[in-house]
Structures are given as structure tokens and as C-alpha cells.
Amino acid sequence: MSARDEIFSNIRRSLGVRADDAARSAIVRNRIDQARAGIRPKRGEGDIPQRLATFKSQAESVSATVAIVESAAKVPQEIARFLRDQNLPATLRMGEDNRLTSLPWDGTQLALSRGASKGDDLNAVSHAEAGVAETGTLVIVSGPHNPSTLNFLPDNHIVVLKAAGVVATYEDALAAIRKAYGKGEMPRTVNMITGPSRSADIEQKLLLGAHGPRRLHIIIVRN
């Protein structure tokens, strides 16, 4: 008997169930098909301004910085300001996301580059699909538009997010992905990011910048 078959037959013997029990199969199928949400915390709820405020305070409580700009056209200036204020070099790497590449970068002195990171980029920008108010969590989807390496290898990660993309709960954000990709289908990677990288492995002291970015700057576009 193969390892697989033996494990399944062991499980079924222990549980006292049969493989051909149609009622059990229906329970599991329905549970997956319906994908009902359970208890959802109230704290992320509210209209867009309320969700924005919750998102901002939650993200800041985990050491991210948050800027709100009126329009997408203001994003390049905000990134330039952030890098300048932090005394960081005026370089920036991004993927092929049109929401980023089409911005008016000419007004800045930033040296732009495109594509995945190989580990030698100091600064990168990604566009998030959603922000989750309940914990200030960003949801970023992998692909050529926003390569996952940009989320982890650069020292400074900047993430752009539309105000309308700020939702109350994880369920809302994941349901949007399900809608975009189809039921049961997923992008290769969904990164849910809550603050910059950290470790408390040395005497429980919280230190930022363990293996991922030391800084996480979130720019929310109001319109």
C-alpha cells in the first residue's frame, strides 16, 4: 500500500468512517462552496473615512508610516519627500503595474528601475490590492506588476493604496481576490503585510528590520 493510501485508510479507520459516505462528502463540499464568514471584529467597520482612520492608526501602531495624498499624481512627490527626509538615496524600483508606471515621475529626481529585485535595491514601491482596517494590514498580490521580491529584499518598502481599497476585514480583502481570480483560484502569492520586518528573538527585545524591510511607508490615495 502506498504511503498515501495507508494514511487515508488509517484516518478512516480511526474516525470510524467510510470513504464512500455521501453525507460526509456533501458536508465538506458545501462548507467549501459556501465559504461562509464567521465572526468579524467590529473595529474595522465604518464608512471610508472611518476605515481610513482605523487603518492608519493600526498601521502606525506597528511602526509603519502613513501618508494620505489627494490624488495619484501626488504620489511621486510624496515618495521623493519620504526618501529625502529619511536621508535615503533617490532610487526606486518597481514592477510593471500601470497604476505606478503611469504616474508623473518626471517632476522628481528619482532614478527609476523596473523588475524583480535581486537583492541590491535599497528602495522599492508596490501597489497594494487592499488595506485591511482591523489591523492596518496591506494585501499585495504577486505577478509582473508587483513582483514579490520587492516586498522583502529592499531596505525601504513603499506601498501605494487607494482609499477605496481600504476594507474592514481580511474576509473582505480575500473575497475581492476570489472575485478577481475565480472561486478556488489564487494568485501564486498573496502577501498580507502588517508593519515592517521585526524580530524579538534576542531577549524578547523588539527590533525592526530583521530580514525584510526596515521601513514600511504607506501612501493612501484619496481619489
Binding site: G95, A116, R188, T189, T194, S197
Partner: peptide
């Protein structure tokens, strides 16, 4: 850890897709 959410929660489904540039 008493965090509301860990910093990185990562959902992975299968290998690199045809148009992926990393993974």
C-alpha cells in the same frame, strides 16, 4: 506573541506562473 497580526502572513499557491518574474 500578543500581536494583533504577525508582520508577514503569506498565502502560497503553486509554483511560478507563466508571466511571473520571481518565485
Amino acid at each position: 506573541t500578543g500581536q494583533d497580526m504577525s508582520v508577514y502572513t503569506t498565502l502560497s499557491t503553486g509554483p511560478r506562473r507563466p508571466d511571473d518574474v520571481d518565485g
